[in-house]
Design a protein around this nucleic acid. Sequence first.
RNA 1: GGCGACGUACCCAAGUGGCUAAGGGAGCGGUCUGCAAAACCGCGAUUCGCCGGUUCGAAUCCGGCCGUCGCCUCCA
Length: 473
Amino acid sequence: MAIVFYNTLTRKKEKFKPITPGIVKMYTCGPTVYNYAHIGNFRAYTFEDLLRRYLKFKGFKVIQVMNLTDVDDKIIKASKEKGVPIEEFTTPYKKAFFEDIETLGIEKAEFYPEATKHINEMVDIIKKLLAKGHAYKAADGSIYFKVSSFEKYGQLANLNVKEMRVGERVASDEYEKEEIRDFALWKSWKPEDGNVYWNTELGKGRPGWHIECSAMSMKYLGNHFDIHTGGVDNIFPHHENEIAQSECATGEKFVNYWLHCEHLLVNDEKMSKSLGNVIYPRELIARGVDPVVIRYTLLSTHYRQKLNFTTEKLISSASSVERLLDFYNSLDFYEDSKQTEFKNLISDTEKAFEEALDDNLNISEAMAAIFELVKEVNKHKAKKQISKTDAKNIKATLDRFDTVLNIFKMGQVKLSEEIRQLIDRRAKARKEKNWKEADRIREYLLEKGIILEDTPQGTRCKKTLIKKDFSKV
RNA sequence: GGCGACGUACCCAAGUGGCUAAGGGAGCGGUCUGCAAAACCGCGAUUCGCCGGUUCGAAUCCGGCCGUCGCCUCCA
């Protein structure tokens, strides 16, 4: 079965066909490391994670590049305020980004190039653009892309650029562009840039924002590659400009499939500093939300759908994850008993899961397939009609799904030696019908985020997915 | 002003021309159980923002209206 993606470029769902059979080359816009990445950023990274994991599930070899923007206006301003060089300023945020990625169960990309280490590549592209007449140098030494030189400009955003409204920011722009819609490839040094500059053939200055993605994507993936992703807010101008720069420099088509992730809202509002509603994953975790709950919340809404992030949704996600994990973990507990023919159920579920994700990563349908399996198997469980082999087969299927979802694995509890001993002590107390002691230990462990459940097959152990008193987002 | 997305139960959410409108959460009643939990059984949209049209047949297609949101050179 072929995968179908909604391509922003054509505004249609299209069958996915990689340029090189069996290999997918994708570029995913990464963080600007001037702060911690917030939950909205991670929505995009989680979507990209789903995308790469599913492509791998389908048997493709994936080469993913995610850039780190470590020089831009915000970074220059913030590092200046702090009185440290930009590298010193960005390093902790780079580190934090990788920590967060790991916490949220996001698989690592093959390359994480940094803008500041690819200035030469950017300069090369700009030189080509100058030579071909697609760029020009303004009086102050800055270099601009000449939008009028690219016939197809506006194709991605579906904007008629000639009739675009001119914003105030543009009107007050001090640079000397030929046309208002032209954008900077190279920004010549200004006193407020301090010691942030590179001496290159283009003069003393620094790169514009868009050029880094063209330079780094083409360096690692070639002039023409398969997939480029980002948030919807990147469609214009960022990705539109990338196409213009790249295609004008190489004369080749840049990207075949453009996939854009919708925004995450917080209580129906856009997340922004001014509204004071920016949420960071590490903050949620500190307040008692397990990372797997955050992951599930971000993952379980289709990427082209706005995701309204609320307390209610987190709590609801925690319950869903709990149901999935309880089911998954219960599969280890079967004694051999009557066998049920689950072959059809398993193959139906696998088929439904794959067909759903084939259809532009329809995660809702994929999850529905899993929940239906859970319900069906639980019914048999209640009637004691599951053998060890059945359970093993079902678990193998879930493990296969989990290479895409990373929920089951991430949700496992890790027990320390101390906790293990307490659990043993409680088992002993229960045997002696010392309910007081048993309940005391259970209470104690609950406070430590460990939940014990007694079943006929023994006591099971799981972690608290969300703190009881967790309330406000 | 231009471009675009969306409106399905208490909440989240799939379905885009045809079986009883998926699935999850929450709720209520029951079974099970040392207690707790899990799990199971049962209950829940005659209806898909509103109005009109096309069709044998519409949540799905067309037109209009209402409402929410995003982008239009900081942004995932």
